[in-house]
Design a protein around this nucleic acid. Structure first.
Lengths: 333, 333
DNA sequence: TTGTAAGCGTTATCAC
DNA sequence: GTGATAACGCTTACAA
């Protein structure tokens, strides 16, 4: 089945290709009658303009490439949604590609995006280095979300993870906790390091020494939360609260605590990070740090539009918010 | 910054466009020397072939459009991952678009996909009617995942939701429960209806009459789980088990039960549907029906490849699996 | 206001 | 093997 082209429409409507194009794009005024017959023909023949040909001819694809890491993380998902929302009716459409958190796949996907001649690239998370990215994108407007780069060419929209870590720890300290354990995220992950830094700062400011035996490594997974609590318990050190690097880890920790007869929040207070959908319905509902994920995605879209039309880039570091629910309570005396 | 074209390479390498194309695609043999110089030039100039021009010229875009509904659902996410995995090294790349569960957006996104001249379309969930889809896709290989169509032109890969509903209910019945409540999903949603049908069949086969007052409506959200339990309790009817239409609903139900002093599984057994990641770490870990989401996505890719190269379509209805964890126990006597 | 014609960057079809 | 040259479907000067 051959596709209907602009030429077919022109023939049927009795006008030239150009006129059809003009009607379709509304670039310049055309005779109402002709306009009508073009529109009619369009509808009658079921004409679907080829965006491909259009891009090739105009040089702009009117699409923004969005490279995600679909690890099933609600956080990254929310960002994507924000990007979509932010693009709204700008005329640009998002084109998603996925890196699956594997550098090679990520590079391939990005190359594919660039090959499709997207007008800009938004990278949500990911692990390619700034150099690798620049090499592939070559001057294309590029920005990252939920990942901070300090280089000039790649702009980034991120939240202040250090602040988040501080907020979580501070909340616990205010409730009178001193023996606060922290389950960290992936060590190489900058977010994880920042959150831990926030924990350290809060402890320091409160004049509470950080006990190294209360800090356990994790990897952002629920399993690692379980393991971490096991580790903490086997070390035999006392703690009245746990700050987990993300909600998923907190879920695992909560389960492990339960299995060991420790009640949340009665015996141990628990704070997560992310505020993913399920957290509000956990038993007990989880106190956590909300990341404005959706908002970040929106900001990314707005920033991208500015980048494209040359308005420049306004750097912004969004802030997280403490959401107090029922997994925390003041320390028993 | 002008993009490097095949023409530039040709000039630098001292050959014709055609030869460059041949080297790049490896269609026919070319002189090794020329080949080398082309490859060199390619690398040196940082040439990135324009997939757009390629598609226009060849008529095939080598991309499969995947229309998702990014509602942040782990289930649909897993399907997408399956599709990606299934495409593997077939040479085809997935092109994602999103409908956000809004018919209009969905139609727009699908139109955009078709406009991009994808070689096939995979619809993951969604709410467009079979007619609407056909109208937009016009003869393009199309198939749906997690949604069943009985029409000829649109193939579908789905799981047997009725069976899943049966499995969940049967599991409860075998544990001795008779007063089994069901929190249904969105009424218009076929999956929801099928799951309920499975519940009815299991009850029927066990010779247990379905008490209408034990059936409550929900909408697949955690909030609806909370509301449903409230409703059940206010009706004052007794029940020793609940089958929730999906895990999220089960989460909400679990929280509501807790708030009302009912323990899971001691007072009430609870079964969900989906087996989303968090379910294994719930307190208590949730007994649920696992949907082979990833597998479905993979199957979709395979089926699409067959559709494209004309091998025809082998319909398949995948089956769900009961995952017994700790939210269920035999009825107290 | 409208038509003609020249691209846009590839692939594909020819001859050579 | 290789190089012209014509598509592919559309946009966009440039004329008229």
């Amino acid at each position: 089945m051959k596709n209907v082209t602009i030429q077919d429409i022109a023939r049927v409507a009795g006008v030239s290709k150009s006129t059809v194009s003009r009607v379709l794009n509304g670039t310049v005024a055309v005779n109402p009658e002709k306009k009508k017959s073009v529109l009619d023909a369009t509808k009658r023949l079921g004409f679907k303009p080829s965006l491909i040909a259009r891009s090739l001819a105009s040089g702009r694809s009117m699409t923004i490439g969005v490279l995600t890491q679909m690890i099933g993380s609600p956080f990254y998902d929310a960002i994507s949604q924000g990007v979509i929302a932010g693009l709204g009716d700008t005329g640009y459409s998002p084109l998603f590609a996925d890196g699956r958190w594997q550098v090679q796949k990520e590079a391939d996907a990005l190359t594919a995006l660039v090959g499709r001649r997207v007008d800009g690239v938004v990278l949500v998370g990911g692990s390619m280095t700034s150099e690798q990215i620049s090499e592939v994108c070559m001057g294309l407007p590029t920005l990252t979300v939920a990942r901070r780069f300090y280089d000039q060419p790649i702009h980034s929209i991120a939240i202040d993870n250090e602040l988040g870590g501080y907020q979580a720890t501070d909340c616990l300290l205010r409730l009178g906790h001193q023996r606060i354990a922290m389950i960290r995220g992936i060590e190489q992950h900058e977010d994880a390091r920042d959150r831990f830094a926030g924990y350290q700062r809060a402890m320091g400011e409160a004049g509470v020494a950080v006990d190294p035996s209360l800090v356990v490594d994790g990897d952002f997974s629920a399993e690692s939360g379980i393991r971490a609590v096991g580790e903490l318990l086997s070390r035999g050190c006392e703690f009245s609260a746990i700050f987990a690097a993300n909600d998923l880890t907190a879920f695992g920790a909560r389960l492990a605590l339960d299995r060991n007869g420790l009640r949340v929040p009665d015996d141990v207070s628990l704070v997560g990070f992310d505020d993913q959908m399920e957290s509000a319905f956990f038993v007990p509902p989880l106190t956590t740090i909300r990341q404005p994920a959706r908002e970040m995605g929106k900001q990314a879209s707005v920033a991208m539009m500015n980048l494209i039309n040359g308005s420049g880039f306004e750097s912004c570091l969004l802030t997280s918010e403490l959401v107090v629910r029922e997994s925390t309570r003041s320390v028993k005396d």
